[in-house]
C-alpha cells in the first residue's frame, strides 16, 4: 500500500445501540468508514443522527456494540475492546478540538498545552519548550502567559489546537471547531487545520453544521438515523 495514502482510521461494520427492548436506540448502524493520512473529512447530519457517537467511537470514548475499529494500524475493537488502556491510546494517537475550546481555566495558554505533554511523561522543561514552539507555530506565542478567560475566541481555539497537536497525534477529532467563530476566523482555523494535517501526516475528522466551511473538507460524510448515507468528494 502506498504509505502516503495509508488509512489512519478504518471502521468496518460498526454498530452501536443504547438500551434494550423498547428503550433501545440504534445510534450507529453498520458503518464503514476509512480516513487516510492527510485527509480532512466532515461528519454531517441533523441532531441525533449519530455524528457525535461516531466521533466518540473513533476517539475510544465509547465502545461499539459490534464491528472493527483500527486506528493508525492498531486494531482497537473487534466486537470487543482489544486494548485495556484506552486512555493511553487517546493520549498517544488522538488529539481533540472542542466547540468551546475547553481550555482549563486555571492554567495559562502555555501550561494548557504543556499539560498534555507532561501527562505523556515528558519533563516539565521539555513540555514547556515544546508548548511554546507549538504556540509560536500557531501564531499565539505572544499570548503564552494569558489565562483562557482573557483570550479572544480565535486565540483560544488556536491554543486548543496547539494542545490537540502537542503529542503529535495521527488522528485529530474536532467537534464543531468553528461554531464559536465568525466566518472569517472559521475559514482561517479550517485552513490551519488543513495545513496541520498535511504537515503532520495526520487526518482530521470534524463534526460540523457550518456550511460556510464545507469547501475546506476533502470529503463530506452524511449521517441520518445512524446510517452513513453517502459521501461526496469536495474540491478544495
Amino acid at each position: 500500500m502506498d504509505e502516503a495514502r495509508r488509512p489512519l482510521i478504518e471502521i468496518a461494520g460498526v454498530s452501536k445501540h443504547f438500551g434494550e427492548g423498547e428503550a433501545r436506540v440504534d445510534a450507529l448502524r453498520d458503518i464503514d468508514l476509512t480516513v487516510r493520512r492527510g485527509e480532512v473529512v466532515a461528519l454531517l447530519g441533523p441532531s441525533g443522527s449519530g455524528k457525535t457517537t461516531l466521533l466518540n467511537v473513533i476517539g475510544c470514548i465509547i465502545a461499539p456494540t459490534v464491528g472493527r475499529v483500527t486506528l493508525d494500524g492498531e486494531l482497537v475493537y473487534d466486537n470487543r475492546a482489544l486494548r485495556g488502556d484506552l486512555r493511553r491510546l487517546r493520549l498517544d494517537k488522538i488529539g481533540f478540538i472542542f466547540q468551546f475550546h475547553n481550555l482549563l481555566p486555571f492554567l495559562n495558554a502555555r501550561d494548557n498545552v504543556a499539560l498534555v505533554l507532561t501527562l505523556a511523561g515528558r519533563s516539565s522543561a521539555e513540555a514547556q519548550e515544546r508548548a511554546l514552539e507549538l504556540l509560536d507555530y500557531l501564531e499565539v506565542g505572544h499570548r503564552k502567559d494569558a489565562m483562557p478567560a482573557v483570550l479572544s475566541g480565535g486565540e483560544a481555539q488556536r491554543v486548543a489546537i496547539a494542545r490537540a497537536l502537542a503529542n503529535s497525534p495521527r488522528i485529530i477529532l474536532a467537534d464543531e471547531p468553528t461554531a464559536a467563530l465568525d466566518s472569517k476566523r472559521a475559514g482561517i482555523v479550517m485552513d490551519l487545520l488543513r495545513k496541520l494535517a498535511a504537515e503532520h501526516d495526520a487526518c482530521i475528522v470534524a463534526v460540523t453544521h457550518d456550511e460556510k466551511i464545507y469547501d475546506r473538507f476533502d470529503r463530506l460524510f452524511h449521517l441520518r438515523d445512524g446510517v452513513l448515507e453517502d459521501q461526496e468528494e469536495e474540491a478544495t
Binding site: G59, L91, F98, R163
Partner: peptide
C-alpha cells in the same frame, strides 16, 4: 466539564 476534558485528553484517574 474540566474533569471530563482532562479524562478525554488522557489524564489518568490518579491525576
Amino acid at each position: 466539564k474540566q474533569i471530563a476534558t482532562l479524562k478525554l485528553i488522557g489524564a489518568p484517574d490518579r491525576t
